[in-house]
Write a protein that binds this DNA or RNA. Structure first.
Lengths: 332, 332
DNA sequence: GAGCCGTGGGAGATCGATCTCCCACACTGT
DNA sequence: ACAGTGTGGGAGATCGATCTCCCACGGCTC
């Protein structure tokens, strides 16, 4: 009743464990085709599965990549993890996803757990630009680590991110072209590099006295709070740029309940282009990340030489996706 | 530069590997407090981490539970995975989540991969009541497997699910009490046990000639298709029960664009009580699963004796969550 | 026909932590 | 003083797959 081992397969096929291993693991070594067939046949008949722990112990490699995201409650990170999973699976590996619950402490624990010999390398979307650096740096000394979508100061490793400044320019230019010039920013989570960069790019473009609403976290609830504040100041504003889709969702919902027409009176944009945006009324204009390209690059860096992982930030070009929330004809 | 091993810690502390292991793994054996301190001190100083593969190989246990869900694109399954993760983590374990991409074939592969010695037990939310059974049965012979949220025929193992019939009765009674009697069902994915049970319960209550819209899958896009069909038949209907929240979201969005007031003309209910429902306008009435209780029970079955895992279905009581989409005063 | 070489296959070591003995030593009671 | 008892600690075996040798054998050259 116990699981069959390689030894059992070898015995059934009348060969040694070494030969059975060569056949089943595909070691680069010629084996008599007839013996190979016998081994494969025996393995199938016995229902043999190679023991992952034993192989990992011997080879020192697990074929698994880990990714730690700030929170799976944010659908953007689900999409992000999925994009990575597809790349990993295409390369014959497996992906393990961990949730840091938006806490640098839990993030450090998750990194610690995964590095206990469970993964060959780690992608991290750091919770905080300041507070995540130390744990990442420590991890990067023990295994390949690449930051994804966000960077962290003092991480000691490379980051594959979006060009947030370019993205902000795309949004502002789009709104300006529509004749919307009184633009407010709803920004959240300045502790993260993406939150901070988006805020900085907005301020750089519109000046420090432009209307901004700062919120602690990227959640829909924060978006609703922002909605109330913007509704109060509706006279000063004809467009709102949100630092994340989840914010835009909460914002639009609250504006509509406050009888502020979107986009009639106020145009709204999101950030991240999560799938849910198309389903809202109105669908929301947003910024799309080239996640597949970013994932491919991040995995290449992870598996490549350590010398390519010096602390620096690689930025990928964003893409503007226009939807009804910034309709050209709606401006009063 | 190579990672420190237990041997190194033992040497640094001046004890044998056995003693070091007893201290660090917490084996039930008294060790001189002074030695224990020396070992822990040495481990900390060297930055020792126990090698997961080696421990797993020796003990035959990984401390990891796997869960295979139909699709992480459906936020309900993200919530479900999260509820399980919390329970697992509280018990000191780790959870690995796999996505079956709504395909029984991929589902079988994921199960196969996870069972290669990576997990101690597996929770599966089967894609299909008919097509998932075989793979689950095979898996259940090799490791503890418990079905979650859905069951599969011929699985050979226990399932922890919601009482879908009771949930449907809660919804129908609620709508009846509001004076809505011309109720339509939007059902999807009859291949899954939950889809089939919800449809069956509706038909049992309202008769086979009640309005039903059948869709292939639980997606928002399917919900929009349903919205168009319902809008065409608006004269025959004053309430729509959706078999999943994602359907309700797409449906409401489409009804509103077709100028059908919700809940003014048509009340709408969802199913699963995902978090996004509160953010819509109107927020949607739904059915809440007692996920924490279900997860706790499922894990207890997973770790308990195999005799408790005979093929049967355990059902948990649903809870009705009333929101504005079935507002009592809105009925024309 | 003797020595070489290339090729396929097997015996045994190995990865690192844990577990099973078994031993040494101190302490107790008679 | 000695046998009995209990307690802490160490040597070596073990988990299962892979890797490193090394051997056997058939074909080759000269």
């Amino acid at each position: 009743m116990t699981a069959p081992r390689l030894l059992d397969v070898a015995a059934a096929a009348g060969v040694s464990r070494a030969t059975a291993s060569r056949v089943l693991a595909g070691t680069p070594r010629n084996v008599d085709p007839d013996l190979a067939r016998r081994v494969e046949e025996a393995a199938r008949r016995l229902g043999y599965r190679t023991n992952h722990s034993a192989r990992a112990l011997r080879t020192g490699t697990t074929g698994t990549v880990g990714v730690v995201v700030p929170s799976l409650a944010n659908p953007y990170f689900v999409q992000l993890a999925d994009a990575i999973a597809q790349q990993v699976r295409a390369a014959g590996g497996q992906l393990v996803v961990s949730d840091a619950a938006n806490s640098p402490t839990i993030e450090a624990e998750q990194i610690e757990t995964l590095l206990g010999g469970r993964v060959d390398g780690l992608l991290v979307v750091p919770v905080s630009a300041a507070a995540s650096g130390a744990a990442v740096r420590a991890a990067a000394k023990r295994a390949p680590v690449v930051l994804f979508d966000r960077w962290a100061r003092g991480s000691g490793t490379v980051a594959v991110t979006l060009d947030n400044a370019a993205a902000m320019r795309l949004l502002l230019d789009h709104l300006d072209a529509l004749g919307r010039h009184r633009i407010a920013l709803v920004a959240a989570d300045q502790a993260s590099s993406s939150g901070a960069e988006r805020l900085a790019a907005f301020t750089a473009a519109r000046g420090a006295d432009a209307t901004t609403v700062l919120l602690p976290s990227f959640t829909t609830d924060a978006g609703r709070t922002a909605g109330r504040r913007i509704a109060e100041r509706r006279a000063e504003v004809d467009a709102v740029v949100c630092g994340a889709d989840v914010l835009a969702v909460g914002l639009v919902s609250t504006l509509q309940r406050s009888a502020v027409p979107v986009p009639g009176e106020i145009a709204v944009t999101g950030f991240d282009d999560t799938e849910m945006l198309e389903l809202l009324d109105p669908p929301i204009t947003s910024i799309r990340h080239p996640l597949a390209d970013m994932a491919e690059r991040a995995l290449a860096l992870l598996q490549g030489p350590a010398a390519d992982r010096t602390e620096q930030v690689e930025r990928f070009a964003p893409q503007l996706v226009v939807r009804a929330s910034t309709d050209a004809d709606a401006h009063a």
